[in-house]
Design a protein around this nucleic acid. Sequence first.
DNA 1: GTTCCCTGCTTACC
DNA 2: ACTGGTAAGCAGGGAGC
Length: 662
Amino acid sequence: LETSIRHNTILCAAAVIDRGGNRSEHEFRGEERDILEGLTRLIRDEDPDFITGYNIDNFDLPRIIERAEESGPRSRFEQAALCGWGRVPAIESEAKRLKPNRANNRVWRLTGRIPLDAWWQVRQTLRPERESLRYVANMLWPDDADKHKLDVDASRMDEEWAARPDEVMEYCVRDTYLPLDILAHLQSIQRKEALAAVALSTVETAAAGTTSQWIDSLVIRLADRENIAVPMTQSGPRRRDQIAGGYVHDVEPGIHPWVAVLDFKSMYPSIMIAQNICSTTLVRDGSKNDSHNVSPTTGTRYLESQEREGLVPRLLSQLMEKRDLHKRELANAEESGDKEAAFLHDQLQYAVKILMNSFYGVFASSFYRFTHPDLGASITEWARHNIRSIIAQLETDGHHVVYSDTDSIFVTAPVEPDSPISRPPEDALVFADWRAARAETLRFGERLANRFTKEGAELEFETALSAFFSHGAKKRYVGRVVWPREEMLIRGYEVRRSDSFSLLRRTMVEMFELILANEPWSAVELTKAQIDSVRAREVDAVDLVISRSCKGQLRRNGSVDFTKVYKNPDSLPYVRAAKQRIEAGLGFTPGMKVGWIVIDGKRSPMRIEAWMVDELGVEPPRYDPNFYARRLAKALGRITEAFGWDENELLAGSRQQTLFDF
DNA sequence: GTTCCCTGCTTACC
DNA sequence: ACTGGTAAGCAGGGAGC
């Protein structure tokens, strides 16, 4: 749709029908009624299974319903001519199922069809820094200029429509192809189908249903076969104390040379299977029997599986076998060059993985029908117990555990001291030392995996690192992987965060390269140089865009209320940016990411300007160089501090400035 | 005008 | 109206100085 900013009405619409790759395009303009009727007729004639678009959940669908209700006839059945998209006969008795509807502001439902928003798929699978269609198209197809041509000013749509409707129509059509291309690129539909296949659910449930519905699909089916009564879900609010989660080991700041990384294969599902944890095996009457599986800290008891195998453990074992099978088939297919089979098995093994990992969350929740607070608590206490006891044994044996998070352990390998940590050229003398260190780390990793793997808790040797670095914060680390591939592994740091800015991300990656190559002083020099260039305004504003997602509540008239979701909305930079977008006529839908540039960081609240360059092609805002210099110094200083250069020393830089000069 | 502490919030890791 | 916990870090704002 293209809509009037002034009157909220629909100016024109375009649709593209994709039938097995053959596409046809359809344009609608004229009276609003005619546009809506035309779209509805097209959908009823062409009968699509999926309906997509960019941000249809929050924009197109609500707009269509709203306009149909406002401009259209009174009765629900008469409105069906304007938005009766459901796959049911257009008769009075079906009036209810004809219209798309959205229960409790959640996902859209449309009888017989599946609305699948390309924006949401992009967001979930790609996590882009910014989410405008223009930005995403540019990211996915950087060389495809006509996919991201910008020749209509969307913020002045009324004027554009009045002056040159043909160009607007063309622009509208082009943007209708993109969501189809995006879904194809992300293989979104295939993924939903694979999930439906393994969860034994409809594709609709796989696409729009909740995790608990996927699990219900498997558990209730099995419970029915076994004549086990299925509890109802209790309604109403039930709060309870949180259960304890995974264990996270402290990290010592600095470089740790030659590290073997091990992790448990499907940790929580394995524990559920091994300990037979299930609603149907939980001992609830206080009886005690030596055969019971007893959890290590709370002493929760479960029947042993020989006495009665729990429904969930059984389902999980089957899923685990299924995943192994698809992985084997995937390997076979790859070997024989059967691309279609390889694709299918890859989708299926991935869907099984997703499904297996969903079990724990549902059973640890307070409101699932088969849940009991003890179930979730038992799973995590076993997990903490297993990993802690391995850490303790390793330390007793004199091995240094560098880090551990939930199901992973990072252990220093016993390599020759002074083995090089960065790969030397193959003709260098020390290359042999590097290779020997790697071989030793591999042997060590394999040995640990064998030693600690037991029935129901398989410890796998996952990667070998020639160096591990952290500045001392949990969930933030970098590793130079030397096996099974050679690559850099970065977790948690600003590099991974979409609310950082690209100059910081880039500089930090370069810095890590140098640190892992054992050249920390070069890293410091690099950082100082970058700080200087921001200070001198030599950096493009596009490299300084910060973005975050922003919530809001949509009012009936299409405006957004921020006070319902935020205590003090105007104190938040992203809310201020969202308001600027709305002001500029660019539109904002709750949940979307908004970008901004800080133009005065000294004021409180800081002054920002929304980033609208992608959509409007306007001049970028003039940024506050000192703010960005400080943010760079802060984030990078945390890292260089491990080598003796702190934030203020970085800021002082080559210019001999003091902390208070900006 | 700092500094320190707390709160509110998002986004990461697993 | 619905899957969990653990953790880092930014920005705003008030208190005590």
